[in-house]
Computed example of a mutant assay.
Amino acid sequence: MTTTEIEEHIVSLIRSHVADGQLIPLHRIDHQIPGGFWKRGEVITSMWQRGLIDIVKVSGSPLIGIPWPGWEHDPKSGPRRLLVA
C-alpha cells in the first residue's frame, strides 16, 4: 500500500469507531493498519504534524481521532499542542 492509501485507511478506521472530534485508543485500531511498526509510526506522525489527526497521550496510552470540523489548525504553525495538568 502507498502512504496515501494507508492514511486513507487510518481515517476510515477512526471514523468507523468514533465521530469526528472524539478519540479512540490507538491500540484498538493499530493491528488493522497495514505496514510494519516503523511505517505505521511514520504515517501517523506525519498525519499529526499536518493536522489531519489529533493525538493525545493519557497515562502513556495514545488516543487518536479526527479533529472537529472547523477546529483544524494551520500545519505551518506546527502540531497542535495540548497541556494537560
Rank of each mutant, 00 (worst) to 15 (best):
M1C: 07
T2F: 13
T2D: 15
T2Q: 14
E5P: 06
I6E: 15
E7I: 07
E8H: 15
E8A: 15
H9M: 12
H9G: 10
I10F: 13
V11I: 15
V11K: 14
S12A: 12
S12L: 03
L13M: 08
I14H: 15
S16I: 11
S16C: 11
H17A: 14
V18N: 07
A19N: 14
G21S: 06
Q22D: 13
L23V: 07
L23T: 08
I24W: 13
I24K: 10
P25E: 15
L26R: 04
L26T: 05
L26M: 04
H27R: 12
H27V: 10
H27G: 07
R28W: 12
R28K: 10
D30K: 10
D30T: 09
Q32K: 09
Q32M: 08
I33T: 09
I33M: 05
P34A: 08
G35H: 09
G35N: 08
G35C: 06
F37W: 03
F37V: 02
F37M: 01
F37L: 01
W38Y: 08
W38A: 04
K39F: 02
K39A: 02
R40H: 12
G41P: 00
E42Y: 06
E42L: 02
V43R: 03
I44G: 01
I44L: 05
I44F: 03
T45Q: 03
T45I: 01
S46I: 00
S46C: 01
S46N: 12
M47D: 04
M47L: 02
M47F: 04
W48L: 00
Q49Y: 03
R50C: 01
R50E: 10
D54A: 09
V56I: 12
K57C: 07
K57L: 05
V58P: 00
S59Q: 10
S59D: 15
G60W: 10
G60M: 04
S61D: 12
S61P: 00
L63K: 05
L63M: 09
I64P: 00
I64K: 01
I64T: 05
G65I: 12
G65C: 14
G65N: 14
I66V: 13
P67W: 15
P67S: 14
P69I: 07
G70V: 05
G70K: 04
W71R: 12
E72W: 09
E72K: 08
H73T: 14
H73R: 10
H73Q: 08
D74C: 08
D74Q: 11
D74L: 07
P75T: 07
P75E: 07
P75D: 09
K76T: 07
K76D: 13
S77H: 09
S77A: 10
G78Y: 03
R80L: 00
R81W: 00
R81K: 00
L82H: 12
L82V: 11
L83K: 10
A85W: 05
A85I: 02
